[in-house]
Design a protein around this nucleic acid. Structure first.
Lengths: 194, 194
DNA sequence: CGCGGGTTTGATGATGCTCAAGCCCGGTGG
DNA sequence: CCACCGGGCTTGAGCATCATCAAACCCGCG
């Protein structure tokens, strides 16, 4: 169970985890299950947990006054799920995170993070790389939203994250792209006629 | 000239700059001027420079096949201008950065950064906070694009960065919001009738 | 005075949304 | 085994939002 996490950290870091580091990780991350439709985080709460996904799928989204959902993040195996802003600034989150499939995770609390995990060198390196990668991908997604039509954004998503299409239904993908499910359906029809 | 930068770094860090740090900074950042319409970075180039704006205004944008510009970033006094992805990954940039006003900057090259600046503790702290803040604000902008109509995005911008409205013409602001100048003009008329 | 850059306005059209209906398919229970 | 149900996907008609194109206006500046 912890292997996936340990391998993940090592793969993102030049300095590998020491034995004591590994012990600290096994001691600090708690295995957990989130059933389909259960929440890891609800809008308005402060995000006190970060989850590393062992297997399953989560989504992060807001709900507007009309009740429609706007997907800002999708997480599957070997991804981290949390609301970073709420986590670091202790402010109430604007987002919900819930399970789309029954999901196994390793859970880290903020306190445990600061006490045990934050100082681990391999973790520091991984963390800074992840933050960087995340910043780049959010930046790209933003640029796509202001500069590309729906069809192109969909094609880009297929290329960047083909796994998502297997794991999430089209209305989720549509929302992630900033369009409705009907528009996505029509976009796909257009594309298949080529 | 260097005061602004030094104060800026200290204001973002708990550990203050030492005398040798300050000497290194003065020695490493080179004063520069970018005249209106001159480029700090052109699409296709690797971003080898980071600029700290002493005064003036820069914009970062892409140009699509139809020739229209899409503004992804605006930078004024006490902001850092560069394409972080290109800077860190050494890949050609998708963006242009040019001066909207005649601008005074302090320039840092990548080599000088790694050799002299990166290890400075106050700089490390500042840098990680900035990256964090930037990630949060890009995330918010992304969320606004998929969930809010043009009018609401404009209102949010007024509240978040009122300075921008003073410094940049409306067609730039419109592009930053992901709409055309005509739409922005009409949105503003709507708002003034309330 | 004329020019250039910025803004506004109007007419028209594309893109994507809303609402409503129907279809497909896998799962559940009679 | 079949009927039904729910979730997801598709399709269509009408509509809202925003883009495009073109023209006019405004104003500071050489």
């Amino acid at each position: 169970m912890y292997e996936a996490l340990i391998n993940y950290i090592n793969s993102y870091s030049t300095t590998q985890l020491s034995e004591p580091d590994i012990a600290a990780i096994k001691d600090t991350f708690k295995p957990g299950k989130i059933k389909k439709k259960e929440f890891l985080l609800k809008e308005g709460q402060v995000c006190n947990l970060t989850a590393f996904v062992i297997n399953g799928a989560l989504r992060q989204y807001s709900v507007d006054e009309k009740g429609s959902e706007h997907i800002v993040g999708l997480y599957i195996e070997n991804w981290w799920a949390s609301d970073r802003e709420s986590w670091t600034t202790l402010t109430p989150s604007l987002y919900n995170i819930d399970a789309w499939e029954n999901t196994d995770v390793l859970l880290l609390t903020r306190d445990a993070y600061y006490e045990r995990i934050k100082p681990i060198p391999a973790f520091i390196e991984m963390n800074s790389k992840l933050q960087e990668n995340n910043a780049f991908s959010v930046q790209k997604r933003l640029h796509a939203l202001i500069s590309l039509p729906a069809e192109k954004r969909y094609i880009d998503l297929i290329n960047a994250y083909p796994q998502f299409l297997q794991r999430f239904p089209q209305h989720i993908i549509a929302s992630y792209l900033g369009i409705t499910k009907e528009t996505l359906s029509r976009v796909r029809r257009q594309l298949s006629n080529k």
